[in-house]
Amino acid sequence: MKVSLPVAMGAALLLTGSAVTGLRGQAPMTFIVESPTMTTGRFMPRDYSPDGRNLSPPLTWSGLPAGTRQLAVISQDYGAGRPPPWVHWIIYNIPGDAGGLPEGIPFDPDHPMPPEIAGAVQGNNGWGLPAYRGPAPPLGSVHHYHFAVFALDEELDLPPGLDRRELLLAIEGHVIGQGDMVPLYERQPMNQFPR
């Protein structure tokens, strides 16, 4: 069962906005986020969208700051949402020694996480689902999809189902590093891809 965050913490977030600050207000260091199947600035494969199997894409990271105990990932589109961003995916409690995320993380809470990220849980995306749901921009428009990865200095054991606001609030003060990659997507007319 999801644990409610105290109302007062919500007020604190409103004051700090969505900017994530590190320890003692220092800017977190950056590290490298990559994917075996996606590249920043290039179109991602349609299997990561509802034009295909809508699997969560694989990610890898390197050069994490020393003392990284845990990671969190938010995938979001700053070109959608009222207000932006529209959140496609939230996953956290990722073990600090994981080198990345495999493709196709289960969208069903009844299905176990892959062993290398045991303990990871998913938060609620813009559709209110604790799962990855890929890009579905309006036909004919190209959108940018930010996969932001946060390195945390502590094992937080957060409950599943947090939304973006709640997650940012929960990791506030624990972010010691940050990295991201930004692939693109444009909706494909589906009848051009008969299988």
Binding site: P50, R53, N54, F107, R133, R187, Q188, M190, N191
Partner: peptide
């Protein structure tokens, strides 16, 4: 059943609304 559920999620959230479907 996993793919069926995945399809139904996309149908539910409106993401299956594409040209030619």
């Amino acid at each position: 059943t996993v793919d069926q559920d995945s399809v139904l999620i996309d149908v539910q959230i409106g993401a299956a609304t594409g040209a030619g479907v």
